[in-house]
Amino acid sequence: MFSLRARDAMSASWAVSLLSKSLTGFSFWIVGTGAASAHVKWFCAYDAAGQPRGLENVLCRDFELLLGVALLWFFSGCVVERTSLGELLVRSINRVTEGLRLHTEVMIRAVCGFFFISLWAVGGIILTPELKTTSPQVGLLQLAIAAGLLSRRTMPFSAAGIVVLFGLAVRDYGTFHLADYPIFLGLAAYLALTGLQKDLFGVPPLDVVRYATAVTLMWASVEKWAYPEWSFPLLIEHPGITLGFDNEFYMRAAGMVEFTLAFALAWTPLVRRVAAAMLLGMFISACFEFGWLDVIGHSGIIVVLVAILADDRPREAEYRAPWLAPAGLCAALTVTLFTYYVGHAAMFNTSIL
């Protein structure tokens, strides 16, 4: 009798825990995970060559629960997109973002100019705060990149300068570390293609940087699962952002929200615009939490998200059947996890499991 009661109590406890975490997963989708959008390598100690959490620890029950919530929300968004409610949302977004849409190119050029002038003013940074350098030529190149953004004719030269900086960072910090930042290559492609008034094999410049942003954020989300302990000092310093839940679950949830919204940036028109709006809220709230370092470091991502939100180009061919959304998300998650862990094991001789 005692054994049956104990088992019933354990089952009830597990059910309460499951319901609580399900509601938490729902709340993450409503309020976002803003502070988790701060790039942990800018604020805390890290070891990119260290052993990541094994996949058997990453793919746990909480992970499966959060993935289920993500699939439900993603599928629901795709269903709503082709309804009258979806059309109303599109019209509403179009009205709000019309001014931004008309000045997308100028906006991106201005923010990129601000970014590179800020890097030059701070000094000793290649592209992001943890990528340090002592070369004085880097600062001069950053100023030249900013100057080149003043004219369309010189934008391709600025793009080439960004690629040079990215190459220097790869030389000094390795390919795996720079896999965090393909958005810089995406911005370089956008600036070059816009300056030359060309597409990339039929893909418009804004779509090129949109895909690069999606890959950047999907990769960063895997890092939240592989190395959650890097963020624990931030969570201890800012305990309110965890919504009262333990740090392990918070990092799993933050990674799942970020991965799903990042993948949505590569999906259908309304879905990616809503995802861009949610990501904007997360990144902007992180700027208030972590200050100017976060403002400068994430300015490139923020301006691209604004451009995606404002992009209203009608593309009927981009709409897909809603049932493809869960399959696409699961496929992207599998490929990204596999690439991250296999790549890390190959470069640093670490274990996958």
Results as ranks from 00 to 15, higher is better:
303 V>M: 00
129 P>F: 04
86 G>Q: 05
264 A>S: 10
284 I>S: 07
27 S>N: 07
259 F>W: 00
213 T>M: 14
225 W>Y: 07
34 G>M: 08
7 R>E: 10
228 P>N: 05
24 T>P: 03
48 A>G: 14
140 L>A: 13
300 G>V: 07
338 F>S: 09
125 I>M: 07
154 T>L: 00
139 G>L: 10
97 T>K: 00
297 G>Y: 03
40 V>D: 10
295 V>Q: 09
34 G>T: 14
79 V>W: 01
182 P>L: 03
231 S>Q: 08
273 R>A: 06
122 V>A: 06
298 H>D: 08
352 I>W: 02
223 E>T: 12
66 L>C: 06
233 P>T: 09
117 I>K: 14
299 S>A: 06
45 A>E: 14
62 D>V: 13
143 L>N: 11
82 R>H: 13
72 L>T: 14
241 I>P: 04
57 N>M: 01
330 C>W: 01
22 S>P: 01
28 F>P: 04
70 A>L: 02
224 K>T: 12
271 V>L: 13
97 T>P: 06
124 G>A: 09
105 E>F: 07
352 I>P: 00
39 H>A: 15
292 W>A: 13
117 I>E: 15
58 V>S: 02
266 A>C: 02
344 H>C: 00
332 A>H: 03
210 R>W: 08
71 L>N: 02
60 C>D: 15
41 K>A: 12
115 F>P: 04
102 L>P: 10
193 L>K: 09
254 A>M: 02
251 M>F: 11
162 I>M: 10
148 G>T: 05
66 L>N: 01
57 N>P: 10
61 R>V: 09
36 A>I: 10
53 R>A: 11
186 G>W: 08
192 A>N: 15
60 C>A: 11
157 F>N: 04
18 L>F: 14
42 W>D: 15
262 A>D: 00
319 Y>L: 11
285 S>D: 15
317 A>I: 02
51 Q>E: 12
169 A>D: 03
281 G>H: 13
213 T>Y: 11
179 A>T: 11
47 D>E: 14
8 D>T: 15
90 V>K: 11
267 W>H: 12
348 F>K: 00
166 F>L: 07
236 I>W: 13
83 T>A: 03
2 F>T: 15
296 I>A: 09
148 G>C: 03
129 P>C: 06
344 H>M: 00
141 L>F: 06
210 R>L: 04
77 G>S: 10
230 W>K: 02
175 T>C: 12
269 P>G: 10
187 L>K: 15
198 K>R: 15
249 F>E: 05
11 S>G: 05
65 L>K: 05
272 R>P: 09
96 V>T: 11
46 Y>V: 05
40 V>G: 09
80 V>P: 00
338 F>Y: 10
35 A>P: 09
264 A>E: 04
268 T>W: 03
227 Y>R: 14
6 A>F: 04
212 A>R: 05
320 R>C: 07
135 S>M: 04
171 R>D: 13
269 P>A: 12
348 F>G: 00
57 N>D: 09
327 A>T: 08
95 R>L: 04
7 R>K: 12
